[in-house]
Nucleic acid binder design. Structure first.
Lengths: 206, 206
DNA sequence: AAATGTGAAGTTGTTCACAGCT
DNA sequence: AGCTGTGAACAACTTCACATTT
């Protein structure tokens, strides 16, 4: 299979296109033009076509794309066809909000377990999800074949927790702690840095 | 003043450098080399020097940068010298976590008010912050000179709320709703799309 | 006529290489 | 000698222009 040579940014946008397609699936007609889909995703139509070009050829000239076919094709290359199990570490303020966030499920992810240094202190409003102590991490990751983790621990301990994650075989980390993680090249990290996003905005207003 | 011609990504990294500098301020010595600071920020030293080049010349050859001076210079161009008032719209699961997030304050932002369509239904665990009804938005924005808003409302209403924000004069929106917002060119939007970040990771793990 | 697919041109961002201070 | 500052080379990404298909 010829993977890993779609540009990073294009992959990101493919997710976006898919979300728009799902919308159209219920509301709109059977086909979309690159123009229409691009507008929904907030990009130029020519960029959309270039992005889809990485995936294959799905359009009919003069007509557009079949919504269902295109959506399936994108699902296929993104590898989101099957439900991915995810774990979350750090059930503090932000962590518990993320546990309650319904958006993950919609895109094919399921948080199957949460961990915290002090699992007894955590009191969630409503949840069926068990909060485990860190000691159980290896065991549960192995049992469920978990590859991805969401990290929402205080920044002081982020690196050491990340080390543990790497050790037990986690391959991708979505990091909410404002820390630059050092991990082996084989492990992917996506950083979501809330304060920096705000700071970034503040620069561009005047 | 010669603003707005530092590349977007460079601005982002400048925030990162500053955070590292603040760290060093307490722990490390009086000076840093580009090599050391770059390592802390997880970038190449040559990139760091290029980025600092956009700001000015602060280093001493053969020695490095003075931590305090450099930090001040970055603060200056980022415009984070003074505390920026921010409002938050949508005090749901994620919204209340963001209210409790201490990271914003550390970087010079203060959430001065929160708004919700149903302010009475919101029950925060602990907070001194008043939750206002949407009708009060214009009044409070004007009174405090608020320019920035954090948007964490359900995606179905995100666009209409954004329209209101634009109307009352908000210039920058940090958007957590999984929706592509349409706003005038004069308004800046930074999108934080949690599900897409996960999806993006899932593509890159084999 | 309408819309896709794509090489080529253009733009932006990153890395290199090294001159120039201290 | 050590480390910054920066033009030039390079790489990544975006947009254009247009041939091609239905």
């Amino acid at each position: 299979m010829t993977k890993v040579d779609i540009p990073r940014k294009a992959v990101y946008r493919l997710s976006l296109y898919q979300r728009c397609l799902n919308h159209l699936r219920t509301t709109g007609g059977r086909t979309v033009s690159s123009e229409a889909l691009a507008k929904a995703a907030g990009v130029k139509s020519t960029q959309l076509r270039k992005d889809l070009g990485y995936v294959g050829q799905f359009g009919t000239r003069g007509l557009g794309y079949d919504v269902g076919t295109l959506s399936d094709a994108i699902t296929e290359v993104l590898g989101t066809a099957r439900l991915q199990p995810v774990i979350l570490i750090g059930v503090g303020n932000l962590g518990s909000a993320l546990l309650g966030y319904s958006g993950f499920g919609k895109e094919g992810f399921e948080i199957i377990a949460a961990f915290d240094a002090f699992p007894d202190k955590v009191r969630l409003r409503e949840t069926k999800l068990p909060i485990f102590a860190m000691q159980r991490l290896g065991e549960i990751v192995a049992r469920h074949g978990v590859k991805m983790a969401i990290l929402s621990v205080p920044s002081q301990v982020a690196q050491s927790v990340a080390n543990v994650l790497v050790e037990v075989g986690i391959q991708a980390i979505l990091n909410f702690s404002p820390t630059v993680l050092e991990v082996p090249d084989s492990v992917f990290v996506n950083q979501v840095d809330l304060a920096i996003e705000l700071e970034n905005l503040s620069y561009f207003i005047r």
